Amino acid sequence: MAGSPENILLRLPTEQERAIRDIYTALAERGLPEQKQRPHISVTFAPTMAAKVVGEAAVILPPLMPAELRRVGTVVFGTKSKQTVAWLLEAPEELERAARRLSAMNPEGRGDRWIPHLTMGLRIQKAIVPDYLAALAEVTSPHLNAVTAERAAFYQPGLGTELRL
């Protein structure tokens, strides 16, 4: 996919974004790859998001906010030389149903599927993933066991715009 895709995503409260950025900083201070992405939870994405998906998201997501998503583990996505390290999240059933509906509506989506996660390491060289996982466990407070989806948004990185849903 050329460039960053358009996303229906969930934004965190400022203080939680700051806590996650502090984790990114602590990892970088240990010599691990710097993470510059803004913390978020993707619902569905596409090179260009279909208008019907954005419209439906604007109807079904806002009533579900805020939503608490429990951190239930750490996962590694990808099979190639660069991988993604993420916190696996468990969402409330209503939010999960809504996310699956939006993914199924998205022609570029993966059908009626959603794996709620928060990316903690993007484009990590496969060889250092074990070290990254160990460091992430060390710098993450054991009390940080949930995140809050405060609001839904439609993000268009190519235009530099974000629409609150």
Rank of each mutant, 00 (worst) to 15 (best):
T14W: 08
G31C: 06
I23Q: 04
H117K: 01
P62Y: 15
R18N: 13
T84I: 13
I115L: 14
K36L: 10
L133E: 07
A28W: 10
P39D: 11
A135F: 07
E138C: 07
V59W: 13
M65K: 07
A135N: 09
E138A: 15
A91K: 01
T84A: 09
M49V: 07
A28H: 11
L64V: 04
A86W: 00
L61E: 02
T14N: 14
E108C: 07
A99E: 01
A57T: 07
L88M: 11
A146W: 10
A51C: 09
T48D: 08
I60S: 13
Q37L: 14
E90G: 03
P62E: 15
R21H: 05
D22V: 11
A46H: 03
L10C: 09
P116V: 01
R38L: 11
V147A: 05
V72K: 09
L10H: 06
H143P: 07
R30K: 10
G55H: 12
V147M: 12
A152Y: 05
G73D: 08
A46W: 04
L10K: 02
K36T: 15
L89H: 00
E34L: 13
E108T: 06
G111K: 11
P130C: 06
H40F: 07
F45T: 13
I128R: 03
P116T: 07
P130K: 05
L12K: 05
A57R: 03
A149Q: 03
E90N: 05
F45C: 09
G31I: 06
E96V: 03
I41G: 00
W87M: 07
V76T: 06
R113E: 03
L69A: 04
R21Q: 08
S42M: 06
L102M: 13
A26S: 06
M105N: 08
E93M: 09
I124L: 12
A19Y: 05
M49Q: 02
K52W: 09
L133G: 08
E93P: 04
L69W: 01
M120E: 08
A58F: 13
T48K: 15
K80S: 15
